[in-house]
Write a protein that binds this DNA or RNA. Sequence first.
DNA 1: GTTGAATCGAGACCGTGTCTCACTTGGACC
DNA 2: GGTCCAAGTGAGACACGGTCTCGATTCAAC
Lengths: 153, 153
Amino acid sequence: MPDPTARAMPDPTAFETAFEAAGHRLTRPRRVLAGLIEARDGAFSAADLEADAQGRQLGIGRATIFRTIELLAEIGALERIDLPTGDHAYVPCGPAHHHHVVCRGCSRSVEIGDLGLAAIARDVARRTGFRIDEHRLEMFGLCPDCRRALVPA
Amino acid sequence: MPDPTARAMPDPTAFETAFEAAGHRLTRPRRVLAGLIEARDGAFSAADLEADAQGRQLGIGRATIFRTIELLAEIGALERIDLPTGDHAYVPCGPAHHHHVVCRGCSRSVEIGDLGLAAIARDVARRTGFRIDEHRLEMFGLCPDCRRALVPA
DNA sequence: GTTGAATCGAGACCGTGTCTCACTTGGACC
DNA sequence: GGTCCAAGTGAGACACGGTCTCGATTCAAC
């Protein structure tokens, strides 16, 4: 009977590769958390991850969960977004500049490139006199699946 | 000697008008907080307001501060924004749909209209299949004054 | 196999925000 | 002006996300 705490170790996941590429150790807790995050495939809160880990009785400390999230955000594999409710969530993503659309039904998230925002930022800079050096755009709505679920007929 | 807790009552401020227009009582704590917020003229955190109120020894409870912020947000006189640090801040604003540019130096904030975002949202909807029903854009940088202060020569 | 720096788990701690509950007060009505 | 009561208040307990500390563990380089 396979030990549930020892996930079969298939190809290293994108997260595992990211850890090593950034010069960080690939430890058991990090591997487990990487697996849990990839299994979620969408925006999640720290509490979600905590519940996942606790549910499977993998003895992973809360501090480690927050540390791992922070580390992944630091190396650009994760990004923190702010839900309309005011809560924080995290979404897996690539390092290039981009934004997210998040489904309020299932939390699935899709990256959406910069769109015309850099140009808008320049425009705002010209009109306000501000020097803009950071911006954040988040969109919320319903993904195709959740839309269909809403109107089943 | 004037009682420091009894602010001279000049023309009702925009906030005070907003309270009454929305059918809420105009109480002493609300008047005081409205004054403190207007004196700040920019983004502020709940803790800032708390410190202001406590510093002046106006016996205003913490709960009242949060309740008042929430109420002002509800009637559209205040909006919650998310700082790049992950903290929350609040900025005074009008009820029309708009976005904010916030100075990371002095917290001054400027409203910036919808820009082309509605069009971008439609574009994203078409490309992703999502139904977009909310978006949030925030820009951060340095206001003209803080820029000058940075390069005094 | 040894070694030590990186990482970990447990749990105390902190800050933001919410809730409860007994008390106060604004303002409508007389 | 006085009465009245629903709306609002202050104090303090509470919930919760996130951080910090510290002694123990573990990865991975040698």
